[in-house]
Design a protein around this nucleic acid. Structure first.
Length: 420
DNA sequence: TCTGGGGTCCTAGGACCC
DNA sequence: TCTGGGGTCCTAGGACCC
């Protein structure tokens, strides 16, 4: 039994390149919402020393000097490209877990007679050719080891052709000794600090620690990880489950001081959460709302508060969720502050078809067909065509997206023209 | 001037019950 | 002098992932 981890190389940057082949080999960065931080970099941009998550304004000079192409995040494009990659990958195994927008695990059960090296190479070539997105493939007896194999495939593209297979004990040990402890899947900053203090430098050193120590300091998760690194399959594919929380949160382009401005934002966030809830056929029983000022402006007075309210009945109606969220907002809003960010998080779900009618609450059941109609209209004519009256009709609010690429694959208006 | 967004799981400790 | 024991549920906080 083996696992494969397939990871798209510099995914967002690669998506931008698919329709801009002139940028192949040139540095690219992709920005977060509001064009704030750098959230993706091509290899060339990484080589120039641009760190992940850096505020873009700190690198303006470097960007200019090196003619780095800058893009606002285009999630419709990335989502669609991801879907294309995943559909192709699904043909390589009946057991797949889509781990993130650019990563998937395949379980290779019953592949004993298959040459996995060439199987991986076939995947690598086909996906890259058919979608334009370069990928790396790691194959190993456990999920954690497949993650490590993938790093090698990505780190040594010439040597490996972006495919690396761990199928012997020598290779496993060699890989463990090569990987710094900070780069182990599941070991973050805090654990790294603690481990390097004990002179645990590599993944191999980590596997030499006692079970008791690991359990005590890294919990049961650390212990499972150790087993997996030892080559004993312990982690397993997870089937895609309904989400347990659904959030919509945003920073604002400018500061807000008025309750009404925040009410509009919170309404829109709540509507977005309700839509996501309906997509997975859930209703929520609680909602959290938070607001805060800009933590980076240390000289301004700071205020940060969240509140969770339990709902009298489960809902996924735009109208009801927005009303509850606004009620919550009113409880935490304090005048006199410059607000920079707000969010709505739906929690505590029950399946839509199991929601019980509450005798003591006048729940308006007419919302169900109304929401169905809204969803159909918005699906057909584009997002947000139907909105609540309290939402942003005058485009008061906008996100800064100055460098947005066209939606080549999801918007007819943006489709490319080929001239011959 | 300018600093992202959306998730998961585990544990310890308190409240509460019998 | 001397003040039980065990279980469950919930929550906050901390860690991690992309």
């Amino acid at each position: 039994m083996m696992f494969a981890l397939i990871d798209c190389n510099n995914f967002y940057a690669s998506c931008e390149r698919v329709f801009r082949p002139d940028l192949i080999g040139k540095p690219i960065v992709v920005l977060s919402n509001n064009d704030g931080c750098i959230i993706a970099r091509s290899n060339e941009a990484k080589d120039l020393g641009i760190p992940m998550g850096a505020p873009v304004y700190q690198f303006e000079k470097l960007i200019k000097e090196n003619k780095i192409s800058v893009f606002s995040a285009n999630f419709s494009l990335y989502g669609d490209m991801s879907h294309r990659v995943m559909s192709l990958l699904a043909e390589y195994s009946p057991d797949m877990e889509i781990y993130s927008i650019d990563e998937a695990f395949l379980k290779l059960d019953g592949f004993d007679r298959i040459n996995l090296q060439s199987y991986g190479l076939d995947m690598q070539r086909k996906i890259t050719k058919w979608t334009g997105i370069p990928i790396s493939v790691g194959i190993a007896p456990t999920m954690a080891l497949a993650k490590m194999a993938n790093r090698i495939a990505k780190k040594f593209p010439q040597k490996t052709q972006n495919v690396y297979l761990i199928n012997t004990e020598e290779k496993r040990i060699k890989t463990l000794k090569w990987l710094p402890v900070a780069d182990i899947w599941g070991i973050g900053r805090q654990h790294t600090k603690r481990l390097t203090a004990l002179n645990v430098q590599t993944a191999f050193d980590f596997t030499q620690l006692s079970d008791a120590w690991i359990k005590k300091h890294l919990s049961i998760l650390g212990l499972r990880l150790k087993r997996d690194l030892e080559g004993v399959p312990t982690l397993e594919l997870e089937e895609s489950k309904a989400k347990k929380n659904i959030a919509t949160t945003r920073s604002f382009e400018t500061n807000y001081t008025e309750l009404d401005q925040l009410k509009e934002r919170v309404t829109t966030f709540a509507v977005s959460c309700a839509e996501k809830l309906r997509k997975q056929s859930s209703c929520c029983n609680a909602v959290m709302v938070f607001i805060h000022t800009n933590g980076h402006r240390k000289k301004l007075p700071q205020y940060s508060k969240n509140i969770v309210i339990k709902l009298p009945f489960p809902t996924n109606s735009n109208i009801e969720l927005a009303n509850f969220a606004v009620t919550a907002l009113e409880k935490i809003f304090k005048p006199g502050y410059f607000y920079k960010k707000a969010g709505v998080i739906a929690m505590d779900f029950t399946p839509q078809d199991q929601t019980q009618l509450n005798l003591f609450e006048n729940r308006d059941l007419s919302h169900i067909p109304i929401m169905n109609a809204i969803d159909r209209i918005n699906r057909k004519f584009g997002q947000q065509k139907v909105r609540l009256g309290s939402q942003d009709f005058g485009r008061v609010w906008k996100m800064r997206q100055e460098r947005l690429s066209p939606c080549y694959t999801t918007d007819l208006a943006d489709i490319i023209t080929v001239k011959s």
